[in-house]
Computed example of a mutant assay.
Amino acid sequence: MGTVGTSADDVAGERRQLINVAYRLLGSVTEAEDAVQDAYARWYGLPRGRQEEIRSPGAWLTTVTSRICLDLLGSARARRERYVGAWLPEPVPDRTEWDHAGGTDPAGPPDPADQLVLDESVTMAFLVVLESMTPAERVAFVLHDVFRYPFAEIAGVLGRTPAASKQLAASARRRVSAARAPEATVKTAGTAPATTIATDRADVVRRVKEAWETKDIATLVGLLDPAAVMTADGGGLVGAALRPVEGGARIAQYMVAIADKAPGLELLERSVNGVPGLVAQRAGAVMTVASFDVSDGRVTRIWAVRNPEKLRSWAWDG
């Protein structure tokens, strides 16, 4: 894991990779940044002689970051039992779509969300599947199937044998297959989704946007799979359905009711975790970031993140 070298540049240069690993393990940009900062603090806390003994700082930092994430995942379940409503991963934007990248001072430190490689392994559909895994399964699967780390090194993170680590990844892989997520076949980080799939999804999302804006329930129902499910995350800080809304007709009615209660709401087509989604803003402030799963030209899943603490990366100067 990582490259050989002990210079300051070698160490600092690992940050982007570490952020990408940690976000996929935790589903939170904020927690990923904290985990990486903790790993760096431990590195710089080592005596100089110990640092020089470490052949690959990148490998050391990845191992430590992954162990920190493993511990966080172990405690996350208890925290999420106290969470108000459904918990969804933190959505990330594609800054290149914006005329103004808000909340980030060009002269200041980089926003961790800007360093994420947006590929199949960060789509909301895939991150939700990762949430169904045990912490050890998730670590083994992400490190091996997404980042191609060998099981001999993953075993050191998990404190298990390479064979046991391989079994954990296989178990996680079965969960992915069972979920039948469109992004189930994960490639090395950096691989872009197929153009045709992205184009089809963008077309469906655009039509959903238009029907939502005109409050056209009939069209919305036609665009939604009859068995579609909508999950909202308000975190108890803003209004959101506490339980998933099931059924295309019910979701369409719910969406129109939201539009009725929020005059002046503006919908924008934006990339959400690397795939077409919608951003709802009001008076310039982002209120909701919605991600969609599309199959056979219809929306099967909607994930609507409304918790303002998870939308900090979406603020910009308009």
Rank of each mutant, 00 (worst) to 15 (best):
T185L: 10
E131D: 15
D114W: 10
R80C: 07
D119L: 10
W98A: 11
Q115E: 15
A125T: 10
R243E: 11
V122W: 03
M133R: 02
V299E: 02
T65N: 02
G318A: 13
E266G: 08
E53R: 11
S177E: 15
D71E: 10
R174W: 12
H100L: 15
P263M: 11
P193R: 06
V205N: 02
A227M: 09
E213P: 08
D38E: 15
V275A: 13
A241L: 06
T96A: 15
I54M: 07
D233Q: 04
R312I: 09
V275E: 09
T30A: 08
A136C: 12
M124T: 04
R24W: 08
V139W: 00
R67T: 01
P135M: 13
D114I: 08
K261G: 10
W98L: 13
R298V: 12
G85I: 07
G190W: 08
T123A: 06
V229N: 02
S66G: 04
T196E: 08
S132D: 14
L223A: 01
P106Y: 04
R206I: 07
P276A: 05
A228S: 12
S177Y: 13
R312E: 11
E120T: 11
V221I: 12
V286M: 03
R42M: 13
E31V: 05
A32M: 00
L73C: 04
Q253N: 13
G239Y: 07
L116C: 06
A32P: 00
L26K: 01
A181K: 05
F147M: 06
R55P: 08
V294S: 00
A192H: 12
S56K: 11
Q281S: 13
A211C: 10
D10S: 02
D233L: 01
L220C: 04
T161W: 06
V299G: 02
I217N: 05
E137K: 02
A178H: 08
G45Q: 02
Q17N: 09
R48C: 01
E90T: 06
P106E: 07
L73H: 00
P47N: 14
A152V: 11
T219G: 09
R77E: 13
A179E: 04
A241M: 08
D71Y: 05
K261L: 14
A179M: 07
T134K: 09
R201F: 01
G49K: 00
W87D: 10
E213K: 11
A155Y: 03
E81I: 09
A140N: 01
A76F: 07
A280G: 07
D9T: 14
D94F: 00
T199L: 12
V84I: 14
A178C: 08
P308M: 06
W43G: 03
T191N: 12
V294N: 05
G239Q: 14
G318M: 14
K310G: 07
A202W: 01
